[in-house]
């Protein structure tokens, strides 16, 4: 009974989400678009931090690289969807390379490597003028996504594509976390030496998680380039890593639905505070710290805890 209702709710919500572009204006649609692509980013971060116990402090590197690859590919050959695939492949390859180099090391070296790589990429983006146009930023030419999307306006195309990709990522990660590989990832999160002692090769699984998260993060960055049609070196900065980490903490680390709520709240706050101007980030950071302190398990984690308590109380009486 409860499951039926959950399914109906999800189906109705999904219909509304798909119908949204036809019910609203470009500004609001832009916000919904941000929520979708940050949702995808938060799912990648949750796979790393929430499920595998990897704290990546250079995730913005993947996000920015995804944005550049998508932007460049769209400009070069006007590949719509293929440019996202390109971003994902580059993100996965970068994740494999960085992961194989640094995940076998102690976490402090991993921290330095991930941070170092993302900073290096940022410096490249600033200085490689002929390709990235440096600090001025890369303008992205809109192009049709093809498929069944061709008939809609560009913004709507990107939005609907984002919905599709967000749903696919969600279903893929849900399946992963229910599988044997998902359980092995969580065992590594809980104790790496213990996982090792029952025959798990922790490095192999961590590299897998890092590469998968790299691909998904790059996809999110690519959608950002597609939707807002500009890519700047700042996308590779620590700020975007922090956003990813915060979304996971807010929604609930290691919770399937956590990233969705993390993204909704982050983008919502970000827009709500826009009128405050430059102080926005400071205020945002303060609010987030407060939220994380008050709800250490995140929104979904805390909700679960509360409903469990109520259930137990009911059973007792």
């Amino acid at each position: 009974m409860k499951r039926t209702w959950t399914r109906i709710t999800i189906a109705v919500a999904l219909v509304l989400v798909v119908a949204f572009p036809f019910l609203t204006n470009a500004y609001i649609l832009g916000i919904a678009q941000a929520m979708l692509l940050y949702f995808i980013y938060a799912m990648a971060m949750n796979l790393l931090m929430g499920y595998t116990g990897i704290r990546s402090f250079g995730q913005a590197g993947f996000w920015g690289v995804g944005a550049y690859v998508t932007g460049l590919m769209m400009n070069m050959h006007q590949y719509g969807i293929l440019s996202l695939l390109g971003a994902m492949i580059i993100g996965a390859v970068l994740g494999l390379a960085v992961g194989m180099l640094s995940l076998r090391l102690q976490s402090v070296y991993f921290f330095i490597t991930t941070l170092g790589v993302s900073e290096m990429l940022r410096v490249i983006a600033i200085n490689w003028m002929p390709v990235t146009r440096g600090p001025m930023g890369l303008m992205v030419q809109p192009t049709s996504m093809g498929l069944f999307l061709g008939r809609f306006e560009y913004q709507t195309q990107v939005y609907l594509l984002s919905v599709l990709l967000a749903v696919l990522c969600f279903l893929g990660l849900r399946t992963l976390m229910r599988s044997h590989t998902g359980k092995i990832l969580m065992s590594i999160r809980d104790s790496e030496p213990l996982a090792d002692s029952v025959g798990v090769n922790p490095t192999a699984y961590k590299v897998f998680a890092f590469a998968t998260a790299g691909a998904i993060t790059a996809l999110s960055g690519g959608l950002n380039a597609m939707a807002y049609r500009i890519v700047v070196p700042d996308f590779l900065s620590m700020q975007y890593t922090t956003i990813g980490l915060l979304m996971v903490l807010i929604g609930g680390s290691g919770e399937l639905w956590g990233p969705l709520f993390g993204a909704l709240i982050y983008v919502g706050f970000n827009e709500g505070l826009r009128s405050i101007g430059e102080f926005r980030l400071v205020i945002f950071a303060l609010i987030m710290i407060l939220v994380v302190m008050l709800f250490p398990k995140g929104l979904i984690g805390t909700l679960k805890q509360q409903t469990n308590k109520i259930k137990q109380r009911k059973q007792q009486t």
């Binding site: 044997h180 809980d190 104790s191 025959g199």
Partner: peptide, 28 residues
């Protein structure tokens, strides 16, 4: 050759069955 630990006992956030499953996957 498998060993157990003096103090690290189990994967804390996994269920009992999931704990044993992770070990049982080895020979699959």
């Amino acid at each position: 050759l498998t060993r157990t630990f003096q103090s690290t006992l189990a994967f804390r956030q996994l269920t009992v069955k999931e704990n044993v499953l992770v070990a049982a996957y080895l020979h699959e």
